[in-house]
Design a protein around this nucleic acid. Structure first.
Lengths: 230, 230
DNA sequence: CGGTAGATTGAGAGTCCTCAAGCTCTGTGG
DNA sequence: CCACAGAGCTTGAGGACTCTCAATCTACCG
């Protein structure tokens, strides 16, 4: 697919060997439970998921969203403290890798190690992005930002059809990603919709006025680059 | 130093070869200007800095803080869009590496590539951490969290003396890191101080009631691990 | 036909923001 | 030696944005 870089000779074979399994999980499943380090790494092959952290009183913050092609569980390898959880939003299919195969991968195929670093850096960029949103944008701007962000990412991996992408999240997900309350998220969403900026019907998102949304959100990302795939 | 892992034979020599220069910059200098990709990578050798992004109307969000040992500029290598800026808080000393030496490093010393991935993952953890703070904690909790976080990190690299660490930031820095206004940051800081939880005198931070601060901030990080150094 | 998850709406309260002014400290120049 | 300017800190007041509480509504399912 156009979204991903081609692999070098030998790399695919190594990945196949490294991959220990293929797993399907239902919507809502904990791919990696919070605070628990998993002995496995994953590549999300199909479906949607998100990384999150919760405070002891239950407040939850979604750190970023995971789409097909995203690598899961790298942070846990190097974690100092509490590790985030990873939860499936839709049914997901995962490629499973043994965690202790990570170092051999770097050693034998440095190019794949480099790719993993790329993926880690890209993921951090998205968290950076969300931190700016949560820290310095108001509710209207936050929601606009998230809608554009998710649309573009879904589009990038070929999910767009007729100007719409799947949108499997409920309003609680949006609220937890943006640092807003559920109620205020709802009101903001309705307000944007009333302005004719987007539509959200039958689990599909359509940006009706992308330029207005971008202006409102102060969105300034360039087109997403082709990324490596492990 | 105890905070960093020992290097393997050969690694140090390679790093020395890879390093192209050593640079000193004054407080306030832009180590990497925002939106500009630098042809160089850095390791912060001495001093304090931070990564940040700004919106077009000037609102600024500090993404994380950089202390000695931190690697700078990796995200830019893989950036899709606008890259964050990096600014010195105090005078800093930097080890400079050519960006195009990164791939040879992975190829010739996979162990160092692995270390860089470690550093990237650790940095993302901190951004995760700050995102939870900005998204789901109130002002009191945010400030408490930041004070503990910076204290622990400074302590980890040997900056603690007599129960105090250097604190070179002004209240605008704190506000921009936490997603608060300057005024509210000030009031919150004073309130914490009035409760006897911390002291901030002559640019030195002291946690007077670390347990209370941790409880207030819902802090649950374990001791920081030894980290690799490039 | 209840039961549940999710969406929606209104009302009141509270946190946090903006505006504005004054204060302290430091460095500079007359 | 003192006036002055600038950066950073502090405080008060009013208002705006966002939150919590509570109730209603819809869609879907067994």
């Amino acid at each position: 697919m156009d979204a991903f870089s081609p692999l070098q000779p030998g790399e695919l074979e190594f990945i196949e060997k490294y991959r220990s399994d293929m797993v399907d999980l239902p919507a809502g499943a904990q791919i990696i439970p919070e605070h628990r380090t998993s002995a496995r790494l994953f590549t999300l092959y199909a479906g949607w998921a998100f990384r999150y952290k919760t405070l002891t009183d239950g407040r939850r913050q979604i750190l970023n969203f995971l789409l097909p092609g995203d690598f899961i569980g790298l942070q846990e390898e190097f974690a100092d403290g509490a590790t985030p959880g990873v939860e499936a939003v839709t049914p997901v299919r995962l490629c499973v890798f043994a965690r202790d195969g990570l170092w051999p991968l770097f050693r034998e195929y440095p190019s794949l190690g480099y790719d993993i670093t790329w993926l880690a850096a890209r993921e951090e960029q998205w968290v950076d992005h969300h931190l700016v949103t949560a820290g310095r944008r108001n509710a209207m701007e936050r929601v606009a930002m998230l809608l554009i962000h998710l649309y573009r990412r879904a589009e990038r991996v070929g999910m767009a059809q007729d100007g719409a992408v799947p949108f499997p999240f409920n309003q609680q997900h949006i609220a937890d990603a943006l640092g807003l309350s559920l109620v205020h998220t709802n009101k903001t969403l309705r307000r944007l919709q009333a302005h004719g900026l987007h539509s959200l019907v039958d689990g599909r998102l359509r940006l009706l006025a992308p330029r207005s949304l971008e202006r409102m959100a102060d969105y300034f990302e360039r087109p997403l680059r082709r990324s490596p795939l492990i």
